[in-house]
Design a protein around this nucleic acid. Structure first.
Length: 163
DNA sequence: GATACAGGCTTGT
DNA sequence: ACAAGCCTGTATC
């Protein structure tokens, strides 16, 4: 349902051009609800609203120095289980990784369920689903090769030297 | 090693 | 209703 390959900028309140790939930011009632990686940059983004600039500032900070990232108030929509996983993800500090299994044990569930919640993460980067890796390997990142590169980039950016 | 399966939750047929 | 998916530990050959 989420993650259309061809996205028009109108689906987002702003497009953020990160060093890796463009990000689509969506607000709802002045609360952050979605950040998607975009495969196709659409330069014609609308003028950012006031609420978006706060998000942009945090993204700037992250891409400048990931270790100084601050928590953000956001309202991701999802099931109770997903919210629980996402909250847990946000407690993982930059530069550290956890495996699906470890988190599953912590939340008394299965690795596969964790993967599911990660996959449907509505707020890329700020809810760090990229900090969850497989017990043996990198794991996946939204199912596509191009986006696995993004996961790698992010971890590398945070100082996790993988391989 | 390799292969098989259950366990847990969501999404897409 | 059912299969499949960013998985992984245990079992079995």
């Amino acid at each position: 349902m989420r993650k259309p390959v061809f996205i028009s900028s109108q689906a987002y309140d702003a497009i953020y051009h990160s060093p890796v790939a463009p990000l689509g930011i969506k607000m709802q009632n002045s609360r952050l609800v979605t950040i998607d990686w975009l495969l196709e940059a659409d330069a014609a983004s609308t003028a950012p609203s006031k609420a978006v600039t706060g998000v942009v500032r945090i993204l700037d900070q992250y891409f400048d120095d990931p270790s100084s990232t601050t928590a953000i108030a956001c309202s991701p929509t999802g099931t109770a289980f997903q919210q629980r996983v996402w909250r847990a993800l946000q407690t993982i500090p930059p530069g550290e990784v956890m495996t699906y299994g470890q988190l599953a044990k912590k939340l008394k569930t299965s690795s596969q369920a964790i993967g599911q919640a990660c996959r449907t993460n509505p707020i890329a980067v700020l809810i760090p689903c990229h900090r969850i890796v497989a017990a043996k390997g990198l794991g996946g990142y939204m199912g596509r090769r191009r986006q696995l590169q993004i996961k790698k980039w992010l971890l590398h950016h945070e100082g996790v030297m993988w391989l």
